[in-house]
Simulated scan of single mutants.
Amino acid sequence: MPEGALEIDRISKRYGDVVALDEMSLTVRGGEMLGFVGSNGAGKTTTMRIALGVLAADSGQVRYGGAPVDRAVRNRIGYMPEERGLYPKMKVLEQLQYLGELHGMRRTEAARAANRWTERLGLAERREEQLQKLSLGNQQRVQLAAALVHDPEVLILDEPFSGLDPVAVEVMSTVLGEKRDQGVPVIFSSHQLDLVQRLCDRVGIVRRGRMVADGTVEELRSSGPVLLTVHAPHAPADWAQGLRGVTVESSRGGHTTLRLDDTADDQEVLRAALETGPVHEFSRARPSLNELFRDVVTEETDE
């Protein structure tokens, strides 16, 4: 296992008859950002809480740098929970300094770090305000600062982009990228798949407590179905019906999107399109992360 990797190895968790995790496994290497995606209730938050020691697994193990994660290691992890957990009546700077000291920093060191991160995250003018008096977006920035104030070796963030305005999204994206470039393993969950596709080195898709897809965005897209975009302005809506290995995804105003399986022949599709008149576009594409995720959810519903 690479040095500095966070490894979640076949962890399982039950609540009575409900299986929350079923031998969940994933690895986040140092200097890598992994997007953790899945439907609500798929097991993402449970996985993160077990990695932090907030919950105990029924079986399996969490390791960092090849060694089991103990209390000392957890103290070096930065965690941003989905349900924000800061003190609403405490002032921003005072709170961040306090959290830094809880992680073992000296008072002066924690104060410097708290000032640095409030400046970095655009909170300098809010340092002396109570958390509850800030906007939700600024509260979220404070929560990120709380995860970063002790200079963690690992970052685990649960829905960090939820509710942020575009400016705050860019600030958080930049900070996470910087930590990744410093060699920190970064894992975050999100339903904003466009952000996951743009930011992450790898993506893990979880369904029913198991990892069902894990790889780079391009690897996952390449393993998905081939999509074909055809613009034949005079073609009737049903022109592609009945073609071997072809499913019509959408058809409107002469623009048709087709899904091709392994038995389809794109030249046969082209001939059928040309029979309707001129063809202005005929291009192959791979599905986006949104489309891949939709397929996973569809499979889950079908099951």
Rank of each mutant, 00 (worst) to 15 (best):
R284P: 00
D70Q: 06
Y98V: 15
Q97F: 05
P287F: 04
E249N: 06
E275Q: 11
P160N: 13
G183M: 06
G204C: 11
A111V: 09
V69A: 00
E7W: 11
S173V: 06
N115D: 15
S162P: 04
L220R: 06
G183H: 06
R71T: 15
D158T: 05
G204A: 15
N40M: 14
D265F: 05
L86D: 03
L6F: 07
H231S: 14
T27P: 13
T298H: 08
L144K: 08
G177W: 04
F188P: 03
R106T: 05
R252W: 04
T45Q: 14
G104D: 05
Y98T: 11
G177L: 11
R71Y: 10
M211R: 13
V149D: 03
A42F: 05
G254M: 07
R180I: 02
Q97H: 04
L131I: 12
E128A: 12
I11R: 00
L243S: 10
A51Y: 02
V226N: 00
L6R: 07
T46N: 03
K44T: 14
R141N: 07
V18C: 11
I50P: 12
R116C: 00
D194N: 10
E249Q: 09
L26N: 10
L270F: 10
D214A: 15
R244P: 01
D214Y: 15
R198F: 10
S190F: 07
P88W: 14
G163K: 12
V37Q: 13
V54W: 08
V92C: 04
V279L: 04
D9R: 15
A20G: 09
T118S: 00
I11W: 04
P287I: 06
L55V: 04
R294K: 02
I77M: 14
Q143G: 15
P287G: 08
L121G: 02
D158K: 09
R259V: 06
M80C: 05
Q143N: 15
G163R: 13
S12T: 15
L131H: 12
G215Y: 12
V184C: 05
V184D: 05
V212L: 13
S12N: 15
V167K: 05
V154N: 03
L134M: 08
Q95C: 07
